[in-house]
């Protein structure tokens, strides 16, 4: 048996099972860590985070893989895709995280070769802010419109009885 990765759900049982599996994998990962290419090390710079291992590593690997596009799929993330290239990328992510590189370092590492397209969620900077802020602006506009209607409501708006009469009238008019 060679478990490659396990996605963690916080269910206690799952934690135990996966924790066990992850410890088994722990050994080989340490060995792989040493295999980072010198050119890669230069590109990556100094690790910005703490080295991860065990369950933490498995969880974080899946989280970061979920932020990256599987290069050979259509819109699926590296975490979701069963395809070989995605699996290879997942192992690479795992190795980088195990060596202490941060999420952002891992993402930019892949970005230098794959381009911005590899990020499944646009980095909120520069022009990309449009996609993050425009919906919020729209929501704010909508809230303002609703608020105007609500504020415009007269204080002596129809009470329950008046409303019942009104409803009756509408029903009659609609003939239903």
């Amino acid at each position: 048996m060679r478990p490659v990765i396990g996605a963690a759900g916080p269910l206690a049982t799952a934690l135990l099972a996966i924790g066990f599996v992850a410890t088994l994998v722990g050994g080989p990962i340490m060995a792989l860590q040493a295999e980072l290419d010198p050119a890669e090390l230069e590109l990556l710079g100094a690790p910005a985070g703490a080295p991860l291992s065990g369950l933490e590593l498995v969880t974080k690997t899946n989280e970061v893989a979920g932020l990256m596009r599987c290069p050979v799929c259509q819109g699926l993330s590296v975490a979701d895709s069963p395809m070989d290239p995605a699996q290879a990328m997942k192992r690479k992510i795992e190795r980088l995280l195990a060596a202490g590189y941060s999420e952002e370092q891992v993402l930019s590492f892949f970005e230098t070769s794959y381009g911005e397209f590899i990020r499944l969620s646009p980095k909120p900077e520069g022009f990309n802010l449009v996609v993050w802020l425009l919906p919020l602006a729209m929501l704010a506009l909508g809230i303002a419109l609703v608020a105007r209607r609500v504020r415009a409501a007269p204080q002596d708006a129809p009470s329950g009885e008046e409303l019942a009469a009104y409803r009756e009238r509408v029903r009659r008019e609609l003939g239903s």
Binding site: E40, P71, A88, K92
Partner: peptide, 13 residues
């Protein structure tokens, strides 16, 4: 092995 070079070159397919 491990597709390291493919990853470094950003191969999409």
């Amino acid at each position: 092995p491990g597709s390291d070079v493919a990853i470094r070159y950003g191969v999409y397919g």
